[in-house]
Design a protein around this nucleic acid. Structure first.
Length: 643
DNA sequence: CTAGGGTTAG
């Protein structure tokens, strides 16, 4: 008990209820007199004003009552506080607080709880905590109010600390407490302990607790546990469905998210804003433009919902459909940093750098303050268009103009920009001067830069740094081995291969996806599984020979350009995107855009191939790789052959 | 009187 007291004192709490913790100045003249029971007439008038949410009249009525020596009781005070909350009247709220404690009146615990929750709703956590500390007795509600307030304010340690103190004081948590404290969990250990605790207390079947559990498990990357909690439920509500769909979508398991969404509809639930946002996110991850378009129809019901519109905007950007993205953006009544950042990054990634920078100016003109991610989009636009001066300017001034410290990602953009512009030395210098330690991604960026400019020594150095930090990175091994092979360093080649064998590293096969009739078709290098594979191969060969007739030369020597890491043999002819393109030509009507998503970067040969196909077949082809988008039209690509 | 789910990059 002593430790608890000490601890509570530390947080501004006195446990001794024998001392008089209240030292507020009495407001009424009848200080010290016992309170009269409320008079029915005056009191009725007062309560009526409260119900009408007429705060000024209610306060006057209360003063009039006090002049008659009549005081409000807990119930009426609580009505007055509701009135203050409805009017967002902070000062009057504080005044009511003083009245409650005037004349030596000892308010009931529940009234103090209401006052605390009022301060929490006004976001005055210090006031709430002070009042909490002065309470003679704290019940579950008092504790839960504080824990929930800290959890919402992202003060996780504080929330967990109060949870422990609550237990030590012998107050048992209820389902409200668990659903609040779970939101503050930052480690798996804590969650498991809490999970055990709620099972012990028989509270784990509550839907609120369950949805919080699902959410926290999936945020900690423990999807298995989240799914387990979800499947064990006999009755589910909409929020529980949203928790699992959101968890899956956020963990890049779009397929499973869409599957659960179907099940949810089959179970008779109607999607709300949160459901649709997660479903859109799942579509975004899978580049499911047509499914996303269908969802758009339902989004129209909630057309003022900012978050939902941001998700819709992103879906169109990431599916490479900039026309749709622009029209959503223009129609949005309210736009926040995320809306602008999404659109800027979307334009940049799709190769429309100038538009992205223009939009950035518009954003600033409209008074929205850019954040960390906005600047990333801006730098990405510069690096994409080779705008060295602009990029360097934005990079150097971001701290001064917007108060944002450049992070690893910002350095990455600039290293990329300098590298592409051939300023490899400057890029190296930047890596050396970074305040934050360069990580594998940084070195991989430098590797990319040195590769584009055939700087073999630097490429080898950067690749070795990558492998030091990320020893399982198959792509880098393959690349390094190819670089050695190109320099006839066969001993090094076999050493790399030995290391890969030893560590059991296999590279991810190249895979491309295309959506036809809202169905996803997946193609893997040298695929044989697709039902139409024979026809696809036949047509691909015809196409390649037709293209060779107009000057296409398959490029099998792409050692320093092999961003793809796929095999360097005949399978080049059958890189997954080539299969997907042919399938697209076969299955989509001649006017429609062929959109392909792939898991690896596109190689030089496929890039040339696609440009020629787009021209010969009069098609627009959009390929989204893990970093960039390529819009092929009339024999050119939006990336300017620079990726 | 206290509680759960959704958006930008990597």
């Amino acid at each position: 008990m002593r430790t608890v007291s000490a601890k509570l004192k530390h947080i501004g709490t006195s446990l001794s209820s024998s001392s008089r913790p209240y030292s507020l100045t009495p407001l009424a003249s009848s200080h010290g007199k016992p309170r009269n029971p409320p008079s029915p007439t005056l009191l009725n008038e007062f309560v009526n004003f409260c119900y009408q949410r007429d705060l000024a009249k209610a306060m006057n009525a209360m003063a009039a009552m006090e002049r008659h020596g009549i005081y409000a009781d807990s119930i009426t005070y609580s009505e007055l506080i509701k009135c203050c909350l409805a009017r967002n009247a902070v000062e009057q709220g504080k005044l009511v607080h003083k009245h409650v404690f005037s004349n030596g009146y000892q308010p009931k615990t529940f009234l103090i709880n209401i006052l605390i929750s009022m301060y929490v709703k006004f976001k005055l956590l210090d006031e709430a905590q002070a009042l909490f500390g002065q309470m003679p007795e704290r019940n579950v509600v008092s504790w839960t109010t504080m824990i929930s307030a800290y959890a919402n304010a992202k003060l996780s340690d504080k929330a967990l600390e109060f949870f422990v103190l609550m237990l030590r004081e012998g107050v048992l948590p209820n389902m409200f407490t668990f659903s609040s404290v779970l939101r503050a969990c930052n480690g798996l250990f804590n969650v498991r302990q809490l999970h055990c605790g709620m099972i012990k207390l028989g509270l784990e079947s509550d839907v609120f607790v369950r949805s919080a559990l699902i959410d926290v498990y999936s945020k900690l990357d423990e999807l298995k546990d989240a799914i387990c909690v979800f499947n064990e439920m006999e009755t589910k509500d909409l929020v529980v469905w949203n928790s699992i769909i959101g968890g899956l979508a956020q963990n890049n398991d779009g397929d499973e998210a869409l599957d659960q969404f179907k099940k949810m509809k089959r179970a008779g639930f109607t999607a709300d804003q949160a459901t649709l946002t997660s479903v859109l996110r799942a579509c975004t991850g899978l580049a499911l433009l047509e499914v996303g378009r269908q969802v758009h129809v339902h989004v129209l019901k909630f057309d003022v919902d900012l978050i939902l519109n941001n998700a819709l905007l992103d879906m169109y950007c990431k599916s490479g459909s900039l026309e749709d993205a622009k029209s959503v953006f223009e129609r949005m009544v309210h736009k926040d940093v995320i809306s602008w950042s999404t659109m800027i990054a979307g334009l940049a990634q799709n190769g429309f750098s100038q538009d992205a920078l223009k939009l950035f100016d518009l954003m600033k003109a409209s008074g929205i303050k850019p954040n960390y991610i906005t600047i990333l989009g801006v730098l990405f636009a510069c690096s994409h268009a080779g705008l060295v001066d602009d990029g360097s300017y934005y990079f150097r001034s971001m701290k001064r103009l917007y108060g944002i410290d450049p992070g690893r990602e910002h350095y990455g953009c600039i290293i990329d920009l300098l590298g592409r512009a051939g300023k490899v030395d400057e890029a190296v210098r930047l890596v050396q001067e970074m305040e934050c330690e360069p990580d594998a991604v940084t070195w991989r960026t430098l590797l990319g830069a040195s590769r584009v400019h055939h700087n073999v020594d630097l490429a080898i150095y950067a690749a070795k740094q990558v492998l030091k930090l990320d020893p399982e990175d198959a792509g880098t091994y393959v690349l390094l081995s190819n670089i050695y092979a190109n320099s006839q360093r066969w001993e090094d080649v076999s050493e790399i291969r030995r290391q890969m064998r030893e560590k059991g590293i296999t590279k991810e096969p190249g895979c491309s996806w295309i959506e036809v009739n809202k169905q996803i078709h997946a193609f893997i290098v040298g695929d044989t599984a697709h039902p139409k594979i024979n026809e696809i191969n036949r047509r691909l060969n015809q196409l390649i020979h037709k293209l060779m007739g107009i000057g296409y030369v398959p490029d099998t020597n792409f050692v320093l350009q092999d961003l793809e890491g796929e095999q360097r043999d005949d399978s080049l002819w059958y890189h997954s995107e080539k299969l997907a393109i042919v399938f697209g030509l076969m299955s989509l009507s001649s006017g429609s855009v062929i959109r392909i998503r792939k898991n690896l970067r596109i190689c030089g040969d496929c890039h040339t191939f696609t440009k020629l196909v787009a021209k010969m077949e009069c098609r627009v082809i959009v390929i989204r790789d893990p970093i960039r988008y390529h819009h092929f039209q009339n024999g050119v690509c939006s990336c300017g052959d620079y990726w």
